[in-house]
Amino acid sequence: MIAPLTNAEWEIIALSLKVTSAAVLMALPIAYGLALVLARRRFPGRFLLDALVHLPLVLPPVVTGYVLLILFGRNGPIGGFLERAFGISLTFQWTGAALAAAVMALPLMVRAMRLSIEAVDQRLVEAAHTLGASKWRAFATIILPLSLPGILAGVILGFARSIGEFGATITFVSNIPGETRTLPLAIYTSLQVPGTDVAVARLVVLAVIISLAALILSEWLVRRASGGRTHVL
């Protein structure tokens, strides 16, 4: 007999979804902007920007978390400014967990979106210009809709990366129940305590269910958006 979810488990799921959604929403416009610039512009420093975007993918997540702590901590250059100017603090807050997840998800999102922007036929953009479309209109009516499958793929990858985020999160915002203890951190915490096999197993099953649901939903979305031409699975 499987017992229904406890309040603590609901709280973990809700927090995980909140952190992950915020992370993906935060990263989405930035990732698309970066993908657009990297795919369609040639400028000095492009390689450097590309490398910088990819850094969280290749660095140990603990290092990324540490860098976030240095930059966004109370005494850090960005964190100190946010605190003084807006009274916003990210340390030990769920918003900080979202920032960590967003930074970790960013490279994957940029890669997926960039590929689909590069796949947009430049000849169609030219055709739009000859029909009187400004750069902005050509972007909104040609590039954006034709790269939609890549945006969705990026969101899915970002969601998957964010919901599994562990190293950068625990380093940057610690492991505070109800605030920064997302699903992976909760599993890790339970594993530290002897005799919690059932609790761990339940959380693991939840992680599997959420990930599978996200995958199936995204597959459906991508197929719909691309008229069946592309898919994730």
């Binding site: 036929d121 055709a127 739009a128 000859t130 009187g132 750069k135």
Partner: peptide, 15 residues
């Protein structure tokens, strides 16, 4: 986009 040109491309380029 300011040349007011109607260009029928050889490869048509329909969206």
């Amino acid at each position: 986009n300011q040349r007011d040109c109607g260009y029928v491309f050889q490869d048509s380029r329909l969206f």
